[in-house]
Nucleic acid binder design. Structure first.
Length: 250
DNA sequence: GCCATAATTCAGGTAGTCCA
DNA sequence: TGGACTACCTGAATTATGGC
């Protein structure tokens, strides 16, 4: 029995569509949402309703971020939604301002993924935002860090030095290390590696590029360094990972 | 809590092997 | 023959520790 048939058998028994937001209602530090192709909420958890000062979460269904959030936040969220809905981009670990309780702004770690129909069209997106707690009241550390994290996520294909990133954030190496660990539970170099491996996984399953080409485009000096790192992180060599995902998708 | 420094661990590069 | 993988050496990054 393949994983696909196990899934198909399970879903065929459901009395109603699988609803995840109820379990996410219990996470008071995490906002969960599903949106349609126009960026309108179709599923939200109670945490998002609480943040927006809305008693019933169903009142959010059909609305967009531009209608619900202050302009300073809503426009940024709408731009990110567009990237996912029009280009199928994956947004991973984006450090960004979000709305906490009582309309207070705080920092969160955002994830977004496109949702596809049977005929491979993007019909919506699924996402969540997990609260972070600022090491100082003003959140200045996160503001500087968010720029450095964006820099890493945009430049992981080139050489990145941890001391240089710490300087960019205006922090000592020690402070930078502690902040990154607080957010990601990873060291700075582990975070850089995770960013690279995430992108490599995407290219292995969504492109025909050779292992060597993927190694190069993910910032590894050569294919051997990539293979070693990839195997250490995922437990599989790049080719085995690609073959494994080909089997599961067929 | 932060920094400096020494010890330790880890990652990258080179060179080589294996295999289709 | 070219792509994928591995062993080994070296330098970089991380961790531990002591002092402020």
């Amino acid at each position: 029995m393949t994983p696909a048939t196990i899934q198909a058998e399970f879903f065929s028994k459901l009395r109603q569509p699988l609803v995840c937001e109820e379990i996410f209602d219990t996470l008071t530090d995490t906002v969960f949402f599903v949106k349609d192709a126009l960026g309108r909420y179709v599923v939200v958890n109670q945490t998002l309703a609480d943040r927006l000062g809305v008693e019933n979460k169903d009142d959010l269904i059909g609305l967009t971020v531009l209608q619900l959030f202050p302009k300073s936040l809503g426009e940024g969220f709408a731009n990110e939604d567009r990237l996912v809905l029009t280009k199928g981009e994956h947004i991973t670990d984006r450090l960004t301002k979000h709305l906490y309780r009582n309309h207070r702004e705080g920092w969160s770690l955002l994830q977004r993924r496109p949702i596809y129909s049977d005929d491979d069209k993007i019909i919506g997106l699924i996402g969540l935002a997990k609260d972070l707690h600022a090491p100082n009241e003003s959140g200045e550390d996160f503001r500087a860090l968010s720029e450095v994290i964006s820099h890493v996520q945009a430049n992981f294909s080139s050489a990145l030095k941890v001391p240089e990133l710490a300087r960019m954030a205006g922090l000592s190496s020690y402070q930078f290390d502690q902040r990154i660990r607080k957010i990601f539970q990873l060291s700075p170099s582990q975070f850089i590696n995770k960013t690279r491996v995430d992108h490599a996984c995407y290219l292995l399953t969504n492109s025909e590029q050779s292992i060597a080409d993927i190694a190069s485009s993910c910032g590894y000096a050569d294919q051997s360094a990539f293979t070693r790192q990839f195997r250490q992180t995922t437990g599989l060599t790049p080719r085995a990972y690609r073959q494994d995902h080909e089997h599961h998708s067929h």
